[in-house]
């Protein structure tokens, strides 16, 4: 407890040029990864997991109309969840948890995209990236 923050800090610069480059590098690398995500192809399936256990797999190609999946609150930490999937993506449309993060995330469809609801220990992951422009059935 011998050194005050003030004394440790007042002589320091706010930032050095080297720092700027390091921070810029982090931001650039992350932005590149983000771009990679953003350009990912649409996925073919979505996996709904509860507490790490597979709950249901949704196959976008075989959905003729919108499908609603209701999650049993007993399996999801007491949170009531409604998941809506159609051929254009999957989203959580209703959640009774306080923060509603999963609902605000919106619809996901690209391979690798994730919706997470921590209170319910729920995750929805889109996978099965295919280069397919369309599916015939």
């Amino acid at each position: 407890m011998s050194k005050f923050t003030y004394e440790l800090a007042r002589e320091r610069k706010f930032i050095t040029k080297k720092n700027i480059f390091i921070f810029a590098a982090i931001v650039l690398v992350c932005a590149a990864i983000w771009l990679f995500y953003a350009l990912a192809p649409n996925g073919g399936t979505a996996e709904i997991k509860l507490d790490g256990e597979l709950y249901e797999t949704v196959d976008f190609a075989s959905l003729e109309a919108a499908k609603e999946i209701f999650i049993d609150p007993n399996l999801a930490g007491g949170v009531e969840l409604t998941i809506t999937a159609d051929s254009t993506g999957i989203s959580v449309t209703r959640a009774t948890c306080p923060d509603k993060t999963c609902v605000e995330t919106g619809k996901i469809v690209r391979a690798g995209e994730v919706i997470i609801c921590l209170p319910a220990k729920l995750s929805i992951t889109v996978s099965g990236a295919s280069d397919a422009d369309a599916i015939t059935y």
């Binding site: 073919g44 399936t45 190609a61 099965g128 369309a134 599916i135």
Partner: peptide
């Protein structure tokens, strides 16, 4: 263009058809 053919026996697709023009139906 890549047009995937639906897997008749399950989820997902079973094959890919590459086309540069025309139409595909199943």
């Amino acid at each position: 263009w890549t047009v995937s053919i639906k897997n008749p026996a399950g989820s997902g697709t079973m094959g890919e058809l590459k086309i540069t023009d025309g139409f595909v139906s199943t």
